[in-house]
């Protein structure tokens, strides 16, 4: 009981300090919560605008300016979105997630920043890889005659999507931040092992999927001129878009964790305050230990 009284005194002191601070804050204008300064927000907005403009230009060039291919005809136009989506998903989003997860797992660099960055990167990467599969299917229908086939590249890409969806499910499986971060980090590293499989599947196995146009083993790009320039632009455009989405998704993660913590503090304070008015702390029925007589 003594410890409860001193705890209530401490809470009362905190409440007085909060009331005093609230009076001061009421006189100040409401500002955007730190640590995101106006300058940083301007940069983020600029990245978003640049991404929209770059994608618009890529779509215009891809659909109406670039010539049809000698072999694929107009079907080559999907080349100006599909590889960019795949590259950003595999080698930027999921690679960043794997790197962040490794840095979190290593004790010397462990920080909540890496866990949040991995989560943000994975969620955004999932959107990109799903679109890679969809655009690839739409390209495959007129070329191969089927939307889907169980060849090595497509199957390993679908597996990657499922593995990272599993990452998202694992993050929701526990509320404990440390446990959540550890499980997610290990999952991300395991899932990322599928990425080299996807990259080299076109070389190792007989697949329907065409081989690399730019990064082929002989390092001789098989595309040039306006088509090559539009392809390069598509990589830049989708990379900018990914960066913008990653920043926003990261901020959402920070806000979610902060609000969870703050709401918990408020709930504890209210519970303690309740205990103060009733004179004693009452445990819920399922937690009460029966007191034996004598």
């Amino acid at each position: 009981m003594c410890s409860l009284e001193s705890l209530l005194e401490v809470m009362a002191t905190i409440d007085k300090a909060i009331d005093k601070r609230r009076t001061v804050m009421a006189a100040e204008p409401v500002t955007r919560p730190a640590p995101w300064s106006a300058r940083r927000n301007r940069w983020v907005r600029a990245i978003g605008v640049a991404a929209i403009l770059a994608i618009a230009l890529d779509v215009y060039l891809g659909l109406w300016v670039t010539p049809p291919d000698k072999v694929q005809g107009n079907l080559v136009r999907l080349l100006y979105i599909h590889p960019a989506l795949a590259t950003v998903a595999l080698y930027v989003a999921f690679a960043l997630a794997a790197l962040s997860s490794a840095l979190w797992l290593w004790r010397r660099t462990r920080a909540p920043f890496f866990d949040r960055l991995a989560a943000a990167s994975v969620e955004t990467g999932i959107v990109f890889i799903a679109l890679t599969i969809v655009t690839g299917s739409l390209w495959g229908r007129p070329v191969w005659g089927v939307y889907w086939t169980w060849d090595a590249t497509l199957t390993s890409t679908a597996l990657l999507l499922l593995l990272f969806l599993g990452y998202v499910a694992i993050r929701k499986s526990t509320a404990d931040p440390q446990r959540r971060a550890r499980r997610s980090a290990i999952t991300a590293l395991v899932a990322f092992m599928d990425v080299p499989l996807i990259q080299f599947s076109v070389l190792w196995w007989k697949t329907l999927h065409q081989k690399s146009t730019v990064l082929n083993p002989s390092l001789t790009p098989k595309i040039g001129g306006i088509m090559g320039a539009t392809l390069a632009l598509s990589f830049v455009a989708f990379l900018l878009l990914f960066v913008w989405m990653l920043i926003n998704r990261y901020r959402i993660e920070v806000l979610k964790e902060s609000l969870e913590g703050a709401e918990m503090e408020v709930a504890i304070r209210e519970r303690v305050a309740e205990a103060g008015t009733s004179g004693h702390l009452e445990l819920p029925a399922d937690l009460r230990v029966p007191v034996s007589g004598g």
């Binding site: 609230r22 804050m25 919560p33 640590p35 920070v254 902060s258 609000l259 703050a262």
Partner: peptide
Amino acid sequence: RLEKAARTLEMENGRSVLRD
């Protein structure tokens, strides 16, 4: 939405809730 909720809690508690 989350920023609005954070601002509301900030006003109620009298301090920033962000932990970045």
